[in-house]
Amino acid sequence: MSFQLQGRWTYRSYRNDTTLVDGNADKALKNIFGEGIFMLAVSNGKVTGTLDMGSGYVLDLSGPVVPVSGGDVRIAFMMIGTGRPGTPTAGWEYDYHGTDAFTWPKGIDQVPAFVGSVLRAKPHDGSPAGYVASFIAVKQT
C-alpha cells in the first residue's frame, strides 16, 4: 500500500508538555497548540496546499516530498506555511516536518495519518520564533 499525502486531513498540534492531564479535560485542551484542516496536493515531488484554522486564519503551504527507502516510513516531507497578507495570519511563518504514521500489518480499519513537528519560524502576536510543537494529521474520508 502506498501512502497518499494528497487530500483533506484533520490537523492538530500539541504543546510538548510532560505534565499528565490525569483525566482533566481543561488541562488536555490547554495542550492543543493549533488545529485545522490541511488541504494538500502533490505533484512532481512537491506538496502544496493550505492549513485552514477557521475565521480567516489560513496558511499557504509548500515544500518537497521525499520518498524514503527501507524501514517503516514511506515518505517524508517539509512544508513552509506562510500567512496571507490582509488576513489575521499576515506575517506568520511556520515550518512543518513530517512522515507517514506506521501502518500496522494486523491493524483493523486503521485510518491513514502522518505525524511530525512544527516550528514557529517568525514571531507574531507577541509570541517568539523558535517554539516547537508536535502534530498529527488524520485523513478525512
Rank of each mutant, 00 (worst) to 15 (best):
G81D: 02
N44A: 12
D100M: 02
T18H: 14
F3A: 01
I75A: 07
G56S: 08
P112I: 01
W9I: 06
V111D: 06
D22C: 10
E93F: 15
D60H: 12
K106L: 09
T18I: 09
M1Y: 11
G71I: 00
Q6E: 00
L119G: 10
V68T: 04
E35Y: 06
L40A: 00
V111C: 01
A41T: 07
V47C: 01
D95Q: 11
D60E: 15
L20F: 11
A129V: 00
W9Q: 05
K27A: 07
G34Q: 10
P88Q: 14
I136A: 05
W104Q: 03
T99C: 04
Y94M: 01
G81L: 03
Y96N: 05
A90K: 15
G49Q: 00
F102I: 04
Y96T: 10
S43N: 13
T89Y: 11
T89H: 06
L119S: 02
L20Q: 11
Y131F: 13
P105H: 14
P123W: 03
M1P: 01
N24D: 06
M53Q: 08
Y94P: 10
T82M: 12
N24V: 06
G126V: 13
M39E: 06
K122Q: 11
A25K: 03
K122F: 05
G70V: 05
F3H: 03
L29D: 02
F135I: 02
K106E: 07
G83A: 10
R12D: 07
G116V: 04
L51K: 10
W9R: 00
Q4V: 03
M53H: 14
P64R: 06
L5D: 02
Y57D: 08
D100Y: 02
V118G: 12
F38K: 06
S134V: 07
P64Q: 08
F102A: 15
A28T: 01
S13M: 13
L29G: 06
Y131P: 11
W9T: 06
R8K: 02
I136Q: 06
T19F: 00
I32S: 10
G34E: 06
V132Q: 11
G126D: 07
W104G: 07
R12C: 14
G23A: 15
S2M: 02
A76I: 08
D22H: 13
K46E: 03
V115M: 00
